[in-house]
Structure formats: C-alpha cells, structure tokens
Design a protein around this nucleic acid. Structure first.
Lengths: 338, 338
DNA sequence: CTGTTAGCGCATTCAC
DNA sequence: GTGAATGCGCTAACAG
C-alpha cells in the first residue's frame, strides 16, 4: 500500500529495462510502439504514478511557479491568482501561493523559500514596506525569471505587467472635475511604490489641465486600509476644509471614506463624490455610490503568467526587462452629481 | 552561476565528508559545535541553499499541502485560502492551490496531479458536479490525509471542517418568519452536496416549527450563480405566486435576486426580504439590504489546516474520519421590515 | 563524533 | 530499439 510501484517494478514485470520503461512513459521516439503499449498497460495495471519529485530532481525543474502577494483575500489579488492558476494549469504548471501580509521581512523569507524549493519562476506583487530589493537579486542570481504584476518597484532589469496607473489617476480625477468637483482630495499609498506615485501624478496632471489648484493638504498618504480611509476622511472633514470629491488610490480606503461620509449624514455623490479602484463584488451591488476604475485582476494575472512562462521556456531572462501595460476603464455607476 | 553549490562543494572545501555537512546543516546533535560553525560559515560564504527537491525525494515528504477549491476568486474561498496559507506558513509548509471551476473531471485531474506531486496532505472543497468519489480513494490508497472543508460529500471515512448548515438554514428562515414573511422561497444548490441538503433541511424545519406551510414551488434548485439567482427570482415573480422572503443558499445568487427585485421597482426588505450567506466585501458596503449568515472563511481554513497537519505529523489517518462544526451567526443589517 | 556506503526514483548518456 | 551504467543532491544506516 505504501510502497508505490516504480518504473523498476513495471520493468521487472515485463522483463525489460527500466530505462526503456522511462522512455516509453515519456513517449520517446526511440521505443517501438509495441513495447510502449505493453508498458502503458502494465503501468495502468499496477497503478503506477510517476514520482514527480524524482523526475524533477533529475531534470532540475519543478513545473511550479511561485506567487507572492500582499494578501490573498483582497479581491484584486484573488482574481489575479484566479488568472494565474488558470493559465498555469493549462500549461501544466502548479502554483504555490504565499502572502507577505505587507511585511517586508516576510516577503523576503517567502521568496527565499520559494527559490529553495526550486520554483521555475516567480510572480510578485511587492508589499507596501518593500523599499530595498536585495531579496529580488537572489532570484536573478539563481537565474529564476521574475515578473512583477500590479505593484512593482522602480528599479530596472525586471519585467512587469501593470495597469496604466497614471491614466487611471488622470481619468478618475478628470471624471470628478467634470462632475463639478472643485475640491478633490487624494488618498494615496506609500510613495516608493510606483503604482501610487503614478496615480498621484495622474491626479496632479488632471488638476493642472483643468486649472484646478493643487493643494498639498488634499493629499493624504496612508497604508490605505479601510480604517485609514475612514480616518483620513474624518480628519479632512474635521479640518474644516471644503471637500467635494475623493480620488482614493484603492478600493478599501474608499469604503472607509464612504462609511465616514454617510455617518456624517452627507450624501454620495451629491455632497462628496468618490472614485476608487474596482472591487468587483462591491461594484456588483446594486446602486453603489462608487464610481470605479476597473482593473481586471484575472487579466493581469493571466498576462503576467504568460510572460513568465515565455521566459521559463526560453530559459532566458531579458536583462533589460519588459513592461506590459494593460488598459483600465472608468466605470460610472451613479451620475446624479451636477 | 548556474551550478549551485552542493553539500559536496562545501565538504570538499572543508576537507570533511558530505554526510557530516548534511548533519551539520540539519543541526544534528552528533556533530561537534566547532564543525557546525565551520560548515555554516562556509555555506554562507558559498551562498549555499539546500536543494529541497533532493531532500524531499530522500525523505519522501514535500512539506507541501495541496488545496482544491471550486474557484479561488469567490470571496469565501479566498478567505479560506488566506487562513490555510497563514496556518501552513507558520508550520513551515507550502501551499499549492488549484481550482476545479466546479468541474468534476478537472477536480479529479487536479487531485491526481497533486498526489503525483507527492503533497503531504489535501484540503478539498468539492465541486458542484462531484457525485462519485473514486478520485478521493486515490488519496486514501496513497495514504495521503485529506480533509474536506465547507463542501464535503456524504460519505464516511473522511474528515471535514464545516459550518452548521442546518442551523444556518434554520436561523435564516426563522429570521424571515419573525420579520413577518409568510411566503418564503429557498434558492438551493445541487442536493448531492451536504451543505445544500442541510441548509434546505434547516429551512423546512423552521417553517414547520412556525407553522408555515412548506410549498415545493418555493424551492428552486440551481447552481447558484448570479444569473441563476436572477432567473429564479424572475420566474418566481412571473409565476404570480406571492413571495415576500428569500433564503438563498449562497451570496452570489442572492445578489442576482436583488438585482431582479430592484429592477421591478420592489423594495428590499420591505417588499421582499432576503437572507444570504456572507460575502464580506458586500456586507461591508454601507446599507446593504441583505441580512447575512456569517461564515468566516479564514477560520474554516485555519481549522481545516490544523486538523490536516495533525494527521500529517501523526502519520495516521483516522479510519473513521472526524467532523468539526464551526459556529456561524446571523448578521442583520437592515431591520425595517415589520 | 565522523566517514563509508547505499540508495530515494528517474532520465540520460553511451554502447550495442 | 534496447540495456547497462551513471548521477541529480541529499539523508540514513552502519561502522568505527
């Protein structure tokens, strides 16, 4: 029961050599059809299953890609993983998932662990704490291809699959302006992450083009948790500043802000309009007062995986790194303002 | 660069045997402290990393657990995976994730694949199509412990971590009755899955206890996708039957139903009250008209993983199988009805 | 405490 | 087309 049959068992049973069995099982061209049939039949009879561990050790590959995300249960990431898993499955790859929980140290350990497990490639969305990149060098030194998705860091030599964050920020802000907002705050995240920097730049650009004054007090940096959004909104309202629009750099903070706004008896979007990034389950709810920037997680996951698999199969990592930027679109679900 | 150092390299460099190096690296008690230090130093110097593949082959373990869920991006499952990953990480295990997409054939292949990859244990939430269980026998024959979570199937000899579905169904239905509903429909799923059967039984029990007539026409079976909920609701309304309450066996179908109800200009919960299972992002939205049964995915994932790890470390699978039932609670967010 | 020997199961040389 | 030998990198058994 516990001693599974090996190629030797089936070789012995057939009176041939294990190497022939191995070749037959791998459908080698240099094995006669007749023996292939016999081998396959015997394998089925014995309930043989290839020991991937041994096979992988020999071939020095694992057919596995490692994924590191900040938090699996965040909708954006779970749908990205959905796309990753699906694409990997079709290509015959397994997917090992791990989450950094936004902690740099954990991210580092996870990546080292995945490399020690000899994953064939790495898909990474960095944590908010990540400001140095030596742990990524390990991948490079080990010749393991790595593709960033969504969150990357501004260093060269790596490939990334991203959405056009500048455009997102621009569109979101412009949307608010066209709706009549004149005092638009921006909830942003850690500025070492390109996505937040770019969304912020988009925000500024839209203000500039439409001749709306940029005010530093309207930009609030946080880790963009729900609680952060709530508190940011609260501080903003308590400060006595006029605010009639919010562009939140993520969805969760937008929810926190909504909660605060509603508690004050204010109306969305009549009193304060909001644009946040998409969180599909929320946008599915009828009558959300949230206009969203839609980024398809599974699309990003799929694209990133395809790129990674290309590197893996070519056995070469482009030293320059390439960047793929996917489109996003603004989805307005509530248009009563102005 | 590509030929990574092995224990032999560091053995050679130190003029000792590779087995001593191996022992030192594993912190064996039978190696002098001095040599341990030398080995560790040399290992660091050479940038040595243990080849887990080889180690695993030798030890015939993988430190990996395999997870099969219907769909990763469903919030319940992604939060379950969150709990699984976190618990596994703390115990030093990797997690391979795969999704059946509710397809039996795919589920079968996935489980076989995971077993071929020699996972140490399996965590499974079966697909809606799963009606025979031979693919699970494979795990048993290979002596690989398997724990069901959330969705199990009514066969004995397996362990499961579940919520009390009967109670959920009962509570949900009773809640509607107490709110004044007299014509309560139930959206249910495939009856070979225990969870749906039990929720249905809870529904019937609550009706019986409160002397509300059970009507077969009020029970609609589907795969509980959003579209199913929408169509079920539509058919119900078109049929001309009186309906003032819905107990949906999952969250997604409840959303579909809500959409349909609102399109007709009806109000929730004034005209038709709804109870569905919890989908955290939705329940977080302010003023949802949905009362939910809260099941903590990460709690279930954590508990299931702990149980599985216990089996793995004890190297024995209880032939009887044990079942852990977690509590759920009804969360009312809107109480204007009656 | 350390070295020797022997595989884990498979895939790949090289002969023939 | 097939068999014999070799080793992927590591660990375990047995000596000493």
């Amino acid at each position: 029961m516990n001693n599974k049959p090996t190629i030797h068992d089936i070789a012995k049973a057939l009176g041939i050599d294990s190497s022939t069995v191995s070749r037959a099982l791998n459908d080698s061209a240099r094995v006669t059809k007749a023996t292939k049939v016999r081998v396959l039949a015997k394998a089925a009879e014995l309930g043989y299953q290839r020991n991937m561990l041994a096979s992988n050790l020999r071939k020095n590959i694992t057919n596995t890609i490692g994924v590191v995300v900040p938090r699996i249960s965040r909708h954006f990431f779970s749908s990205a993983i959905q796309g990753i898993e699906e694409t990997a499955y079709l290509a015959g790859y397994n997917v090992i998932i791990s989450q950094s929980l936004e902690q740099f140290e954990r991210e580092k350990k996870l990546i080292e662990g995945l490399i020690a497990n000899r994953v064939d490639g790495l898909l990474v969305s960095v944590s908010m704490e990540t400001i140095n990149y030596e742990h990524l060098e390990v991948a490079k030194n080990n010749n393991i291809p790595l593709v960033f998705f969504d969150r990357h860091c501004g260093i060269s030599g790596y490939s990334s699959v991203l959405v056009d964050d500048f455009k997102c920020g621009f569109d979101a802000t412009e949307h608010l302006i066209l709706k009549g907002c004149k005092h638009i705050a921006h909830f942003s995240g850690p500025q070492q992450l390109e996505i937040y920097k770019n969304r912020f730049n988009g925000y500024k650009a839209a203000l500039a083009i439409h001749n709306v004054t940029f005010k530093n007090e309207y930009v609030i940096n946080s880790r963009l948790m729900e609680q952060d959004g709530y508190l940011s909104m609260q501080n903003l309202l308590n400060s006595g500043q006029k605010v009639d629009g919010i562009f939140s750099a993520n969805d969760v903070a937008a929810i926190g802000a909504m909660k605060c706004i509603k508690e004050r008896g204010l109306k969305i979007p009549e009193d304060i309009a909001i644009v946040g990034f998409s969180n599909e389950p929320i946008s599915r709810v009828i009558e959300p007062s949230l206009t969203t920037i839609d980024q398809s997680g599974s699309e990003i996951g799929k694209t990133a995986t395809e790129l990674l698999l290309k590197y893996i199969s070519k056995k070469e990592i482009p030293s320059e790194g390439q960047t793929i930027i996917l489109n996003s679109k603004l989805i307005e679900r509530h248009s009563s303002k102005k």
